[in-house]
Design a protein around this nucleic acid. Structure first.
Lengths: 233, 233
DNA sequence: TCTAAAGTGCACACAAGAGTGCAACTTAGG
DNA sequence: CCTAAGTTGCACTCTTGTGTGCACTTTAGA
């Protein structure tokens, strides 16, 4: 499958890679809705047959593993992109920034969060998300230390509650609709609120972030049939 | 089973009712950990054989239904007990009170929350929790109206986020440990934070509640300028 | 103590989902 | 156009879990 060995007489077909991506995306989408979605359903969502899955992934777990890796890569990338400005910033701003960036990976993050609870890849997913967790933990620790964040909750716990707050918004997005701009805003506000800021303060920090276009692209739209045009890429 | 008809020659055994309770409790406990726990596992947890379950519940769904009803009863009772003081109180205090009372029903609430997402009884569970939801929604609406709660998030959404905040704490409790006092305190603080209060304000409201057993885990120290940010624990 | 109620253990049947093998068909790359 | 890569459909096997029937044992209540 992933053998670029010399025995290959011809380059692999291009659409195979696309289908593989489609499968991962379909799985992420469906598992968001139902963590027990069958391979049958996932294949259908991707516009393939169940049998075809086994051309890309040896087992169900392998597929889930790929989702984890794939998702983690995107998430960590998003996290780092918020970090590029290397100047030691205000923890509040930094937390808000991470929240905002993370929002773009809604689907991936939520699936990861779901997979963290269930399945045999708990460990794997946990590890994959560790960089993000550590980063958040670090920001929270610094925020508390500086006296900006609340000090009435232990740092470790507070850090986890901040994560949960973010995921709650992703849940809200999955269940009731949220535009991209709304979602980002809500994530930031929720996260800052749990960190101890009042609504007013959180609003101020949000403004200080001066986010890119408020009219960003909307939701990740997963077409059921191939004729549907793609939106954001 | 539920036939008190004249055909009964003898009263049902007392332990049968106990076992029924045990099953419901076991199911609630296990489903908290794994929403797909098998009847085999549930029966074992209750100290019975799988076969015995069918003496109490016709199907798996019937058992889940009972959990929902059972849990809803306790939850709504807890909610009402917070309401007995009929004086129109401060919404903040009221929200905090509901949060504190609700904490006692951790297991039940969390299962309900899990069942709300999955399973065919989504509708049922949703209905069962409706009183609580409505109550929270009402408090939030009044809080916003009064200008006490944040106004930068639509009431409906805010109400749901408040619920989620509470559930996040229950998650934290399920995964890492939480004493009863700690849990109650965290629920109140989280819920108030999302409602828009700063850490300091939330702390003050918590004190105003004057709950029993707050002595063991009091970090009433919320400094704006931290002399010594004492690490908790 | 007597006995029905409750529980046990084992036998099934049934369903759904994962994973495999294979022949036949489509499609993209050369 | 040729052909291998990719896909499909079907027919399995295997596993896990639900639900049921029935003979048997245990237990609480009168």
């Amino acid at each position: 499958m992933t053998e670029p060995s010399s025995t290959r007489t011809r380059a692999p077909r291009r659409d195979a890679a696309e289908n593989r991506e489609a499968l991962i995306l379909a799985a992420a989408t469906l598992l968001n809705r139902d963590p027990n979605a069958s391979l049958e359903a996932i294949a259908a969502e991707a516009g393939l047959s169940r049998r075809a899955i086994y051309g890309h992934f040896a087992t169900r777990d392998a597929l889930l593993r790929e989702i984890a890796v794939h998702g983690a890569a995107r998430i960590n990338a998003a996290m780092l992109s918020a970090e590029t400005e290397t100047e030691p910033r205000d923890p509040a701003l930094e937390l808000a920034a991470v929240g905002a960036r993370i929002w773009h990976e809604v689907d991936h993050i939520r699936v990861m969060a779901l997979l963290t609870v269930r399945g045999p890849q708990v460990q794997l997913v946990g590890d994959a998300l560790k960089p993000l967790r550590d980063h958040v933990h670090d920001i929270v620790a610094r925020g508390v230390e500086a006296g900006a964040f609340r000090a009435d909750i232990a740092v470790d716990r507070l850090s986890r509650l901040v994560e949960s707050a973010a995921i709650s918004v992703l849940d809200e997005a999955a269940r009731h609709g949220l535009t991209s701009a709304e979602g980002r805003r809500l994530v930031v506000l929720s996260v800052l609120s749990i960190a101890g800021f009042s609504a007013r303060e959180a609003g101020a920090i949000l403004l200080a972030l001066d986010l890119p276009g408020l009219d960003d692209a909307t939701f990740t739209d997963v077409p059921t049939d191939p004729s549907t045009p793609e939106a954001t890429r």
